[in-house]
Amino acid sequence: MERRKERIDRGIKVRAGDVFALSSWREMLYLLAPRLIPVLGFLILPLVLNAYWQKVLLSVAAFALLAISWDILAQTGMVSLGQSLFFGLGAYCSGALSHGFGWHPLLALPTAAVLGGLLGTLCLLPVLRLRGVYFSMVTLIIPLMLVRIVEATKIFGGTEGLSGIAPLPSKWIELYLIVTVLLAALFGFRRLMDSDYGLVLKAIRDNDRSVINAGINIYWFKAQALFIASSLAALTGAFMTHVYMFVGMPVFALDYSILPIAAAVVGGPGTLAGATVGAVILVPLSEALRGIGGLRIVFYGLFLVVFIVALPEGIFHYIQRKYHQFERWVEVQ
């Protein structure tokens, strides 16, 4: 007697997907809960945590933004192995504006986001035609090259970096700024990826030739996606510059490339929410594992492998499925 698992949508999901959602509190709650939990969580947590864990929350938000930026690129079919490129460009832009011209951080942040985004897009514009692994290889190489260039030409302080960069006005502005940016990016870009515009981006990933066939200029769309993703990561980089009050060669480090990918893969690629979930799990975990020092990156590497092989859909898709559907065993006829 062979059996198989059958998945059926829950009744409440079917009802809540319709106009009847407005007819009962239970269904409204069913729809709202998954959205309210992250929002309330991120807004309330800064108030209840102590100073140390507030810093951890800060890096959770920063890595979640990097992972979202990675995911936007991945959904357009460009898998980047060098998120630190965008992060570093934003960090250096903001650092230079703040250090060189004495700009106020709140003014330097958005400028650095746009400037860093533009520079990041320009760096990758020549290789926009590359597909798959070839694009990934280039993104792996460029940050390494920028490090060497900074080292060789000694611009922006060379190996020493720029220190003494103006911090943000207060700790609370710092925290709520990054949390607001994260929530806005998460929900805003989720909406964007569900719109017709996002459909074009996803179609480029699925089959770029048929998108060309439909008379759409895929390079223009890819450049736009690149700009969106890189300015998001550049904003994060600029923000972290003002938090650390320092910018130097470590901004191009492997950490900023690997952790976002690990977060997105663990959380579940393709939803942006998954990337956030991944960062929420991995960053505090890495804080808890701080005692083992360099071994952390070993664990990220193993996490990547285990999740890619055993749970390629990621945690978010898994939870989403359990939330919307129930499973039962049925006999195979």
Partner: peptide
Amino acid sequence: RVRGQALAEVIATFGIGLAILELFHY
């Protein structure tokens, strides 16, 4: 298990390489 999905292959091998190298680094 991920054969044919080029990007999953890249991420998986990169993860393994990272784990080995960082272990020696540690």
